[in-house]
Every structure is written in C-alpha cells, then in structure tokens.
Simulated assay, not measured.
Amino acid sequence: MASLAGPIVNPSIPTNALTCSQFEQQTSYLRSWLNFRPTGPGPFGRTNTRDVAVYYVQGPLVGGFVGCAPYITPNGPVIVVTNGAAGQTLAHELGHLLGLAHVNDVNNLMNPTAFPTSYLLTNQQCTTARSSRHFQSCP
C-alpha cells in the first residue's frame, strides 16, 4: 500500500467529509484511510483483523460529532476520535464497537453527551460488551 501522508477530515470538502455512517458509505479517500493498518517489522509488529485501529483526527466530524464507531473495514474495526473530545470519548466509542447503545443517564459512559460523571457501566452493559465478537481477553 502506498504511504499516506495523513487523513484530512474536513466537513466543508465533500471528498474529505467523514460521517458517522457505515464504512461502505464513506468516500474512497476516507475508506483508504480507515482501512489502513501498519505492518511489521517495526514497533507495531503484525496486525490482524481483530485488532482495533484508533485514529485521532482534527475535527469535528460531519454533524459536529467528536467520535464515531464502529467502522468495520476489511482489515478490522476502527474508532475515530477528534481533537478536543472529552477524555472518555474513546471509551464511549469502544463501547459502541462492543455493541453498546446510547442510554439517557449522565452517569453512564454511553450517555450521548459526555459529562464529568459519565464513566459508569451497568452489569448488563458489561455482559453485552464481553459477549461481543470484538472483545479479546489478554493472554
């Protein structure tokens, strides 16, 4: 794969407007980026299709979103988080990858809007996340 200089995510440029929609609905430029994985040798070693790629981009995304997931690409799942996002945004987007939906509780990590108190998960959410095909236990 050719070396890519970096994703340019700009809602005002239609070819670079990353949306929170399925991978297949993105432009070819953005699909190339979302599908990219580093390959070894090097600090990353070999990756596989179960590894989750996380991309931090200058945002916001189309619609003002600061994070979006999951993008399911041929090379594996992807999470996108923009600069300026709240600290728990990555964890929230990982929750989506693991099958969690939004809930209306400002104390819950899956609340659509991040609050300083938004970090809890229910027992049922933990069970759902553990049963996801994307969940991997450490060896």
Rank of each mutant, 00 (worst) to 15 (best):
G84N: 07
P112M: 03
P11F: 06
P77T: 07
A86G: 06
H92Y: 05
T82Y: 01
F115E: 07
G99P: 04
P14V: 14
V54T: 07
T15D: 15
G76A: 13
L109N: 11
P77D: 12
N123M: 05
L34R: 06
A5K: 10
T122Q: 02
P43I: 14
I13N: 10
I13M: 08
L120H: 14
S32Q: 13
Q88K: 13
A86F: 14
R50H: 15
G63H: 00
C68I: 06
G95D: 05
F135Q: 08
A85K: 01
G76D: 14
L109I: 11
Q22G: 10
N10F: 12
N83F: 10
Q58M: 08
Q26L: 00
S3D: 13
Q25H: 08
P14W: 13
N35S: 13
P14Y: 13
N123E: 13
P41H: 03
P116D: 04
V9R: 07
W33D: 04
N48A: 08
P139A: 04
G6C: 07
W33C: 07
V103D: 05
S3Y: 11
I8V: 15
T19R: 15
P116S: 08
V81H: 01
V54F: 10
A2V: 10
A69F: 02
F135D: 08
E24A: 13
Y71W: 12
S137C: 13
L34T: 06
E93F: 02
G95H: 04
P41K: 03
P41D: 03
V78F: 04
N48L: 04
V52N: 07
A129P: 00
E93Y: 02
P112S: 05
V66R: 11
V81S: 01
F135E: 09
D105A: 09
R133F: 08
G99K: 05
M1L: 09
A69V: 02
N48H: 12
L121K: 03
N107T: 15
G59D: 00
F23A: 01
G63K: 00
Q125D: 12
T27S: 12
G84K: 05
E93A: 03
L90K: 06
L18H: 03
G64I: 01
T47M: 15
V66K: 11
F36I: 12
S137G: 09
H102R: 02
H96G: 07
P7Q: 08
Q26C: 01
W33M: 04
R133Y: 10
V106L: 08
P7G: 06
Y56A: 14
C138N: 12
C68Q: 02
E24R: 08
L100F: 01
N48Q: 12
G6D: 02
G42Y: 03
N48R: 10
A114W: 10
S118A: 11
A114T: 15
L100K: 00
L94K: 06
N35R: 11
T47G: 12
Q58W: 11
Q22E: 11
N75C: 13
H134G: 07
H102I: 11
